[in-house]
Design a protein around this nucleic acid. Sequence first.
DNA 1: TAAAAAGTGTTGTTTTTACAACAAAAATAT
DNA 2: ATATTTTTGTTGTAAAAACAACACTTTTTA
Lengths: 224, 224
Amino acid sequence: MEYFQELKSTKIFDSASEFDCQAMMFCFKTRFKTFDKNENIVTQGNKIEDIILILKGGAIVENIDILGNISIVMQLKKGDVYGIESAYAGDEFYKDSVIASEKCLVLFMNKHRLINPCENKCKRHDAVVKNLMRLVAESNLKLLDKLTHLSKKSTREKLLSYLGLMSERAKSDYFEIPFNLTELANYLSVDRSAMTTELGKMKKEGLIDYDKRQFHIFNNKIKY
Amino acid sequence: MEYFQELKSTKIFDSASEFDCQAMMFCFKTRFKTFDKNENIVTQGNKIEDIILILKGGAIVENIDILGNISIVMQLKKGDVYGIESAYAGDEFYKDSVIASEKCLVLFMNKHRLINPCENKCKRHDAVVKNLMRLVAESNLKLLDKLTHLSKKSTREKLLSYLGLMSERAKSDYFEIPFNLTELANYLSVDRSAMTTELGKMKKEGLIDYDKRQFHIFNNKIKY
DNA sequence: TAAAAAGTGTTGTTTTTACAACAAAAATAT
DNA sequence: ATATTTTTGTTGTAAAAACAACACTTTTTA
């Protein structure tokens, strides 16, 4: 079966057998399609027919609001799914456009077949739904974390909220962050240079120490 | 059956029959419990055994970070569920505490029974899972909206992002928001008085008009 | 209906941030 | 190894926000 290797290594098909994958491909009325860089995979405002799964390459999710402002909602990479929340929430139209940021291979799965109970009794359908649920649940938790940081008013508070969480996750005062500083500023929605300045101050005040992505937070020095 | 009226009016049990509810109560190993104001329903750091559903009253979800800062993550009201994302994401411990903000009635449902396929073949188990998925999906979309607003840097941009979306939803330049101004400032994480000032400026500049919760946005006047 | 509470609008001051422009260091590509 | 690009650090200035304090209005409660 074509693309079986790509399929089984995704979180949602999660090591399913080739036979089971084949059955699901039929059940979900899937089709594979490749896109070149900058091609639209999904177009904002179009009717939601499919949930998409990125099998190779990457894409960005872009939204245009009523005022015409374009914003990047998120990035999709291998294994990521788009459209599942809207599908379950009962939305009729795609909220965003998905645009290939490089050459990529995409699996389209029929929305109705996916979210409704399987009539074909295809063995792993339930497992896929559970995997999807986990994906959405994880996404939810990530968004909540980000919201916690962004709802702080000052850059310093945002940084401490983020670094504190990272430290907590690492169960250590020493930890590495998954961003470079430019990306971190972007993630926290603050000006990069202002953030660097603030990090510098915090270092000088002895609250934190850092080098590149390596951080050391002096939790004891941070007043409650 | 006790509390059947409360159960069937929730989104997750969604008009299930009394018989089906009864079966699910057994299947999910549920128990009902009432709490007085300020009592802990769930305690941060404790092992996740149950998913909770608020049947009467309301509660707040509160988080204490590693630095000791307490923040209100969200509010729960009748019909709301807590713990489902963490359960599906495989977390072991509750991320937050849930505290009754008034006298309330809570349903505890066993996490494992709920998220794993039903062995009792109880008729509506799948439907409940689908309803849960819709809940989580909707929550996801709400969080994404809020993030869109919060990631704008200025108060004006935050307001326009929010009001623009509300207008889009209402399919009209005239719409009513579900917050009073104090709540809106809180939602957008900006200072209330600064927000009022900004709203005043925008009104003076002819971008918007408003009275209490009634807004009129002049989309044509907003430059792209 | 009176009193209390909640919500809204305004102002001035202080603090913080965004922004722009640039320099230097580090990483990557050729 | 050298050139190019990316990342990081610094500064000054202008703009914006937070904060605090208060007056006024509306809504809720007793």
